[in-house]
Computed example of a mutant assay.
Amino acid sequence: MKRSISFIAALLVVAACSKPEQEPAWSKIDLPTDGRMVLRDVADCGDKWWAVGGVLTGTASGASAGPMSDGQAAPATRPAAWIGSPGSAWTEVPFAPLPASYYGPRQVIKSVACADGRVAMVGAVPGGAHGNPRVSTWRLTTDGRMAENPAPFETYGGDEAVGVGPIAAGPRGFAIAGIRSSGAAAWFSPDGRTFTLSELDAAGTAADDVRALPDGRWLITGTTADQQPATWVVEDGHWAPGARPSDVRETAVVTDGELRIAGEPADAPVRPVAVATHADTILLAGDDSLWQATVHR
């Protein structure tokens, strides 16, 4: 029996409207390494992607080992970073041979950010008698190496230390979100070399994330003393309550170990640790593997 062209067209329209959104097709990226790697963050730096973390080098001993629940020494690590672009081979970024601290060469890079050709990172490793995190920042030098920035211990540690979180980059430099015993805190740097601590001075508050706003200010998100979501806008060390701008959106995010694309749950090849996007390409890091996919929108 023949069907009219209009009837067939109607069926095609219904089918197109009911077709579920296409899931991304993931391909694994091979990263050069001389040991077992761990990945903690990824970033889109324009013409290059960055992936950061560390490489397991053996079993630690002494002050940098840190405690484990079974009493055994923690694995020894070194900081690591890789750069590449979609469809190309990746290379490992060298680290400067002269670190600024004992703990620097043993750290895992936790977060990376970039803007205008500048790259900065935050690294940490358990250390000392209580295994508290020993935190450093790192910067990309003109010779293409990552160099550890010298800083007094109290900048990120000390009696008031609670936690140091992710780093972000913007037109005015870099910012790191975190928590001190006084509450929400952040560290700011114009060049990724020297960071200055800024505290909200509101007990019970916490800063979980930071990002640059187009006008150069910083948007910090976290929680209040009663665990309610909070947002602050910081400029020149001054903290003010502020709403999240409606134009600050992300194509893909990782929330509670789940990948979400355009606000909806999406399939991932591994449990995601971090994600970054550039145009229609997504870069996703698992604990020990790196993946990319094209998003059809």
Rank of each mutant, 00 (worst) to 15 (best):
G87Y: 05
G87V: 06
S88F: 09
S88N: 14
A89K: 14
W90P: 07
T91E: 11
E92C: 02
E92Q: 15
V93C: 06
P94G: 07
P94Y: 04
F95G: 04
F95E: 07
F95D: 04
A96D: 15
A96K: 08
L98T: 15
P99I: 10
A100D: 12
S101R: 15
Y102E: 12
Y102S: 10
P105T: 08
R106P: 03
V108M: 12
I109D: 02
K110D: 07
K110M: 08
K110R: 15
S111L: 05
S111R: 06
S111P: 07
S111N: 07
V112L: 10
A113I: 04
C114T: 09
A115E: 09
D116Q: 12
D116G: 09
D116N: 12
G117I: 12
G117L: 11
R118D: 08
R118V: 01
G123A: 14
V125A: 11
V125I: 12
P126S: 08
G127I: 00
G131M: 08
N132D: 10
P133V: 00
P133F: 01
R134A: 14
V135F: 00
V135S: 00
W138Q: 01
R139I: 01
R139F: 07
R139W: 02
L140S: 03
L140V: 06
D143E: 12
G144I: 08
G144K: 14
R145C: 06
R145A: 13
E148F: 01
P150W: 10
A151G: 05
A151E: 03
F153R: 11
E154F: 05
T155P: 03
Y156E: 01
G157F: 00
G158I: 04
E160S: 13
E160K: 15
V162Q: 04
P166A: 10
A169L: 09
A169Q: 06
R172N: 12
G173D: 07
F174I: 03
A175G: 14
I176R: 03
I176M: 02
A177W: 05
G178M: 00
I179T: 15
R180D: 09
S181V: 13
G183H: 00
G183K: 01
A184K: 00
A185T: 10
A185D: 06
A185W: 00
A185F: 10
A185C: 08
A186F: 02
F188H: 06
S189T: 05
S189V: 02
P190G: 12
P190T: 14
D191A: 15
R193I: 15
R193E: 12
F195Y: 11
S198E: 07
S198R: 13
S198Q: 10
S198P: 02
E199R: 11
L200G: 02
L200Q: 09
D201L: 05
D201C: 03
A203D: 07
A206C: 04
D208P: 04
D209S: 15
R211W: 07
R211C: 13
D215S: 13
R217E: 08
R217M: 05
W218M: 01
W218I: 03
L219S: 10
I220G: 04
